[in-house]
Design a protein around this nucleic acid. Structure first.
Lengths: 143, 143
DNA sequence: TTTAGTGCAAAAGTTTTGCATGGTC
DNA sequence: GACCATGCAAAACTTTTGCACTAAA
């Protein structure tokens, strides 16, 4: 209870920090994302909200996720085929380990690219602005 | 001319090697992919084919790309938002350097993950089956 | 009070599917 | 000849948009 209020305050602050308005709908989307262990599509997230009797519309879910992705508050992944998946992430640089069987997603804080990244981009005349590593495999439970 | 025939023979062989039937439509999709410097969506590829007066249907393009992706003959990328992009790739392990301005895609043959990959997956109890690195930046021409 | 955000329903766009027909092996 | 592949059109989905209304700052 006290904890729920605490989380809500955190999420409000998170939104405020991005310079956008704090609305019930955005808080609901964030709260739902923070409950998800793994990644979800906009459609799935919306269904979860409905199950909780939220009145938030699907269009708002799309708009909110796009906004949050733009601000860097959520990450987008797209491992399984065509639809985009969203996930609330830690703010620091990190990468993902994805289980191909259960879709469990683990964040990895370290980044092993370092020198290689510099070498390779320089070789091709690129200036890297971002990079992502997605490692697919089987988690302990699924092997 | 002789070169065109040569390419066609190569592509036929490529299909045969996958154990699937060699059809006009599949050859056209492969030929179009081999002409693309960068990546394309199913929709774009189909439009290109139409411009060449191909009769190949959109559904066939989707079915063919899915088949080729499944066989590992093409790679799928999904950098810009929602739709999947396809690209004919070299068969060896490689990664991509993508220009965020012009969408130019450069394949990088070396892979700098090596030890880090092993360490990180072991740490989390995963067995890695695959991984992809996508480096985004600006190419020489776009800076 | 001003302006950004939302809901709804419609539109746009993408991908998949069923089924009769045609082509490869 | 057997069976896989295709075309077409319909269906199923996903995502975006216009606009009147609501709520945050």
């Amino acid at each position: 209870m006290a904890r729920t209020l605490q989380i809500k305050a955190d999420l409000s602050e998170l939104l405020a920090r991005q310079g956008v308005r704090v609305t019930r709908q955005r808080l609901e989307v964030l709260a739902e994302l923070s409950r998800e262990r793994d990644d979800v599509t906009a459609q799935v997230l919306w269904r979860r909200l409905r199950e909780r009797d939220s009145q938030t519309g699907l269009a708002t879910v799309y708009r909110t996720l796009a906004l949050l992705a733009d601000k860097g508050v959520v990450d987008t992944l797209s491992h399984h085929g065509t639809e985009l998946c969203y996930r609330l992430c830690t703010e620091s640089h990190h990468h993902h380990l994805v289980c191909s069987s259960c879709h469990r997603v683990v964040e990895v804080e370290q980044c092993g690219l370092g020198n290689w990244l510099d070498t390779v981009t320089a070789q091709h005349g690129f200036v890297a602005t971002d990079h992502r590593v997605e490692i697919t495999g089987l988690c302990r439970a699924c092997r």
